[in-house]
Amino acid sequence: MKVNLLKTDDSLLRRIMNESGQPVNLCFQCRKCSAGCPMIDEFDFPPNMVMRMIQLGRREELLASKAIWMCVSCETCGARCPNGIEIAPVMDCLRAECLEEGVIPADKTAVGLHTAFTDNVKVFGRLHEATMLMLFKLRDKKISKDDIELGVKLLLRGKIPLLPRRSKDLQKIRELFKDSGR
């Protein structure tokens, strides 16, 4: 019998636990996290399975998964976990590892949004919705009717100012970006 055997490796588990500060090894698969997850339909692996895959060291599959980008960090799971595992910071670690390792993210739109957002902050120190949304949608090349309608509504209500506002100490803010490698 030839099956796709996996060798267990706890180096991922140790690293994630250290970086996130979360006791991922304690997960005993009660699945309460998945039961309450608002995004579960968008996940390829439910949150409980993400915990299991970390325990078993299934790194490649995790970094290439949609789950890590679809998590909205609502922390519903963390608030209810019987072992006190906050999954949101764990997801953050996996996303960071995905980007650092140059793995192609399973959901480019989500990464595109986060990148456009932080790039915008890098420029102004604060968010300027108009330029951020424009750049994001241009890069993403996906604009829906809903998007346009919403944009118009917000513009009409004066909720998308045309001119940006800037932080004063922009130099320090850009140092922060440089320091974090973004």
Partner: peptide, 20 residues
């Protein structure tokens, strides 16, 4: 003086950036 807190995006890319 103040800057963006990182909102819902920075933590997705880098914990250090978000906290910074």
């Amino acid at each position: 003086d103040w800057c963006c807190c990182g909102a819902a995006s920075a933590h997705n890319l880098s914990r250090t950036l978000a906290l910074g």
